[in-house]
Nucleic acid binder design. Structure first.
Lengths: 396, 396
DNA sequence: AACGATTTCGGGACCGTTCCCGATAGAGAG
DNA sequence: CTCTCTATCGGGAACGGTCCCGAAATCGTT
């Protein structure tokens, strides 16, 4: 039997809709509405009242405007008042409510970073540095990863948008073919900077390593070391980065009068499984290249492994150059010659450009920023005299 | 000359303090206060008015309460009304304001994850899985890293607290010696779950791999493979994880009647530089062990490298077992025998326990959850017949 | 002393939701 | 037709800040 929580009457109680699953009742003795939950839910988890600026104001008998001013260290405030407020805030363990502040200021003071994966160390390192730079400027960072899937990318971007991030740093998934899903961001005036895995489109500035030049000098390095039949493991065709690296590879061949053999170029989708498959495909060919420039280190690493399985001597029999200096590249045997991207510089540039744009909409981000890549020579690209020397060359 | 923006009078304008850097003036003709910014700041970055719940309400000539109900899919709402609202929301590109919602509901629907580093793949993998699990439950994840520094750890925890996270997943830095800095969290009733790098303290439940057992079977594996003089590279003494792994190592020796030689145990601080140094120190000893159980893979990897540099054959001359299955461990030569932690299970358990506690404060998280580790046998621990066979054993 | 300039403070309207409390119109019962 | 229920809606007070506007107090100058 249900009793009115106000007048304690049992009769005359009517059901009156429901809210959040709970039934509501109406007592017509005292004309009172109430909901009823069978077990009074125990010691209700008391929300541990955080101190607010009003608490400080009351204690100090001043207005909350003044407290706010003192806390934000703004002008128009007496030094003594400010000190008193600061002291009281300390005493009460005051923590500013980020949501209230963001709500009224219409800024979240956070930026989103979306990366396609987190398992190679390029992106983890990027994130570490970007986060440090952002937090120095007072910005929070929300990290998301698309897992190389376009639909995931769309999802996380939607979530970030609802999160009201002030800007986004984005590196595209291998499946992404257009930037249409970024429309909401440009409509809302939220700046987006693409990095590393980019796609050119007006309104979306990019920051990237000089993939063309890196591929060029990587391939040229193989030529100089005496390889003549140089193949290529490329990335997904829809990514700028794949195209640029391919162009660099091909132009290096051309420059040195070597013929480009399309039969020696195969493409992989940046997944690990496919990297293994590509290595096999390439080595299965009846006429195989004597060197390979790979679009990234994982592809090169699995090529080394596969070649060793088949008894080939990587270096003398098969020269290999990778791209991006994976953590495994210096410990694998032979160690992998690769191209080092300027991760730190890239991350800092991204944050710098993005924050400038956020702070002043009139700031114009340059459409593309290209950063230098450098060749790290190791053993996988040594045709002569490499055998037995591998140990010494490890960088430790 | 300054004109009143109201009555256009030039005389009788007095300065009247300043706000946010801008000078304020007072016109005594019309008794009006105003601020004056010299260059009207160009096309003011129009904040691109997001559609709100009120916009929807007005368009549909219903109240915002109803719109809110429709959007939250709650009861007390007519199906047609709900459809109309949903349609209009779509049309207006409505995105709910996360801050307003969190402000009034006093929940952020986000959790913080603090890890000591992001360069080994244990933590990156953990994060990937945890994030997926959390977002399935409608929770956002904020990722922070302490970079193995205690003061950084304190900082990021403070930031997360101000961010009003509903819960925290924390893996301690190598410098952390107590959990006192988590006091604010327990005071505020925000649950914290420690994982992997933990410290026992009432009120702070832990989730971790069975380090003791892993170390035990790892060491026992060396014994079974014929090694008799087994040394140890340990972790920082303040970490539970180091102690447990050390105990497992030592108990395995004892079980098999082998003597524990304190001279063969050295400690490193989990930094890369120190890993190199430890390898050198250990191999420099006049009487060196014939096998080493290392507290983690990086230490083992640098030991392999250093041993190879000195012409030792890892395996036959020096058996090595690591811990945590780093991505490098299967490509290094010889490949590294190591212990696989149940990353996925650990991440999911953490999220599961934390969210349960968040959703219902009465839920009691078990003080410790221990998950199984499994041995991955590779080549670095093969005393006999290992030479020349390395290639075959690579898992690809 | 009179007046203007400046510093410092208080009041209160917002920001966009959620949710509690009532109200109302039909449906169904008697 | 009257009465009771129920489904559905509206009004409005929070949530915890920020910031605009005006006022009061203080200071300096003639």
């Amino acid at each position: 039997m249900i009793k009115c929580t106000k007048c304690n009457e049992v009769s005359g109680i009517a059901r009156a809709g429901q809210v959040r699953g709970k039934q509501r009742y109406h007592c017509k003795h005292c004309n009172y509405y109430f909901t009823f939950q069978s077990p009074p839910p125990g010691k209700k988890s008391s929300p541990a009242h955080h101190a607010t600026i009003l608490d400080i104001a009351h204690k100090l008998k001043i207005s909350k405007s003044t407290v706010s001013r003192a806390l934000r260290n703004s002008a128009d405030i007496n030094q003594e008042t400010r000190d008193a407020v600061l002291k009281m805030a300390q005493e009460l363990n005051y923590v500013p409510n980020y949501f209230a502040s963001s709500l009224v200021r219409r800024k979240s003071y956070s930026i989103g970073i979306v990366v396609p994966e987190l398992i190679t160390n390029f992106f983890s390192q990027f994130i570490i540095i970007a986060q440090k730079a952002a937090s120095l400027a007072g910005y929070e960072v929300v990290i998301c990863h698309s897992n190389e899937s376009f639909s995931n990318e769309v999802d996380v971007l939607k979530r970030l948008f609802a999160y009201q991030v002030d800007g986004v740093l984005l590196s595209l998934s291998s499946e992404t073919k257009s930037l249409d899903h970024l429309q909401v961001y440009s409509d809302a005036g939220v700046p987006v900077v693409l990095f590393n895995r980019v796609k050119n489109k007006p309104g979306f500035p990019t920051v990237l390593a000089d993939d063309y030049h890196g591929a060029f000098i990587g391939t040229e390095h193989l030529v100089k070391n005496g390889y003549r039949n140089i193949g290529h493991i490329g990335g997904p065709g829809n990514l700028q980065i794949s195209k640029n690296r391919f162009r660099g590879y091909r132009d290096a061949l051309t420059k040195h009068g070597l013929e480009y053999n399309p039969n020696w170029t195969i493409y992989h989708d940046l997944s690990q499984a496919d990297a293994c498959k590509c290595a096999k495909t390439l080595l299965d060919k009846s006429s195989r290249p004597d060197a390979v420039f790979a679009v990234n280190d994982p592809a090169a690493i699995y090529l080394i492994i596969e070649a060793k399985k088949r008894g080939l001597h990587v270096g003398p029999d098969l020269g290999i150059v990778g791209f991006s200096n994976d953590s495994r590249s210096e410990v694998i045997e032979p160690s992998l010659t690769t191209l080092q991207q300027p991760i730190e510089q890239m991350a800092e540039t991204c944050i710098h450009l993005l924050l400038n744009k956020i702070k002043d909409d009139r700031f114009a981000i340059p459409p593309t920023t290209v950063l230098k890549t450098t060749l790290i020579e190791r053993c996988s690209s040594k045709k002569e005299g490499a055998r037995g020397k591998e140990f010494k060359s490890l960088i430790v």
